[in-house]
Amino acid sequence: MLDQLARLGRSGLDYLASVGRAHLLLLRILQGLSDMLPRPRLLIQQLFSVGVLSVMIIVVSGLFVGMVLGLQGHYVLSKFGAAETLGVMVAASLVRELGPVVTALLFAGRAGSALTAEIGLMKATEQLSGLEMMAVDPIKRVLTPRFFAGFIAMPLLAALFSAIGVVGGHLVGVGLLGVDSGAYWSQMQATIDLHEDIFNGVIKSLVFGFTCTWIALYQGYDSLPTSAGVSRATTRTVVHSALAVLGLDFILTALMFGE
């Protein structure tokens, strides 16, 4: 009985300690900003591996999600004779929810896991230690550029996802199901609000970018420097990011759209 209580206490303390370490790491990552600005090449390199290499999966997923929304939305809306509002439905779901959320989930799987594995392996192969002994702070030089690359890339990827999705919905709705093209766009424009919908969507994806990259970097930096440790850290990155994104999405949605 007491043993179990002790185990519970220990795991609680361990958890708190890891939360503390994650925040300290974040602080040091952010402090590295002044060190990174004179070296834009580091950021560009990371924008390439975090952003550019994720474009393909984002574009393809966005297109298909938009097309499915077109099909399903038309099925429901045409029952009420409101097929012209298909554009509204597609755009609102994409811009408000699916764009930021699905992009963040794909990002966690595609870029987040890669970041964790990279940092974890750099730790396991003593590259981080090596940098430290060369009097180079590995957090500033390795983690900071990756963090800001994730933070910048996420809203751009989410915008790409939503834009491609709207076009995908148009392809199916207008091209296949015969919704009027003018109605598709005009209904959309009349209903979707720049502040309410699009800015809030961008804010969501900024928050998700911050969180997912932070989780990925922390898990990599805090991983045990063994192959099992890195693989576990990679799994944790995907799981924790997905949970964090969905949880935060609920909170943000409640704050933004709840009255």
Binding site: V95, I192, D197
Partner: peptide, 10 residues
């Protein structure tokens, strides 16, 4: 894409 969302969608 952001501009597209701002101008064409909203």
């Amino acid at each position: 894409a952001l501009f597209f969302l701002a101008l064409q969608v909203s």
